[in-house]
């Protein structure tokens, strides 16, 4: 198991392994996303209260989940950076941070757009949206710290420490915001308040989430692969890769 991990955490091996993996991921993603869009926009029935405007959950909910998932990935990378000093984890951390920030932003914007018909305002200090907003600032903090340090290894280590402080804080922020929210406003209309979501609505939501995950994975892999080339730019294998590509063109 460890031998396996060690093998694929070497930058060169990961580069070639991910090259083989990417086509499969792309095909699966295209199939899933086509099906999910069809399911979300056509086969799912309109909500009896919200009409068609509820369909924004097919973007909002997966984005919100991605924003948390990517932070968890960053947390795992941080542990690998600090404990095992794995270069691939350093690269992963800086590669996925902006992706996570963008999905947090998408979740916020779609949540706000959805809020307009639901609450009548663009922004409501709802617990979920507020903690999502705090999460955005945690992402921006990690990105700011990564950018402020020129040396990429110390930069990755510093960002890892910040990221782990963030991991401990996310649940605390989340529950304190929720508690604050119920205290000030009484229970708000939670987006999952309807206990039984119709199965035709649920299935596209789940497939859409998987599609979002695949999308994140694909984009991350592209970013990581580019960063690997920059990181190892002086080594022979990178030079070979670049000359090979040039010949193909």
């Amino acid at each position: 198991m460890f031998k396996f991990l060690y093998h694929y955490s070497s930058l060169r091996n990961f580069y070639f392994f991910s090259e083989k993996l990417l086509p499969f991921l792309l095909i699966t993603f295209v199939c899933l996303v086509t099906y999910s869009i069809y399911g979300a926009l056509i086969s799912a029935p309109a909500d009896y209260q919200q009409g068609d405007s509820f369909r924004i959950i097919y973007v909002h909910v997966p984005s919100a989940w991605m924003s948390l998932l990517i932070y968890m990935v960053m947390g795992l990378s941080s542990v690998s950076v600090l404990v095992w000093k794995i270069k691939l984890a350093e690269i992963t951390l800086s590669a996925v941070a902006p992706i996570g920030a963008v999905f947090t932003l998408i979740a916020l914007v779609t949540g706000s757009i959805w809020g307009k018909p639901m609450w009548g305002t663009w922004w409501e200090w709802d617990a979920r949206l507020t903690s999502e907003l705090v999460l955005l600032f945690l992402y921006l903090g990690v990105i700011a710290l990564l950018n402020a340090i020129d040396d990429r290894r110390t930069g990755a280590r510093s960002a890892s420490i910040l990221c782990l402080i963030g991991i401990v804080n996310i649940p605390i922020v989340h529950y304190s915001v929720e508690w604050w929210n119920t205290l000030h406003q009484g229970p708000t209309v939670s987006k999952f308040s309807s206990p039984s979501i119709h199965i035709d609505m649920l299935i596209p939501l789940l497939t859409m989430t998987v599609a979002f995950m695949l999308y994140c994975l694909i984009i991350s892999l592209y970013r990581i692969r580019t960063m690997i080339l920059v990181y190892d730019k002086d080594s022979q294998w990178v030079k070979n890769v670049i000359t090979d590509n040039r010949e193909q063109i």
Partner: peptide, 16 residues
């Protein structure tokens, strides 16, 4: 930078 990094972590304290 230190202010921007630190303030989000203070939100729970501020609430309570």
């Amino acid at each position: 930078l230190v202010i921007v990094l630190a303030l989000p972590f203070y939100i729970p304290l501020l609430i309570f």
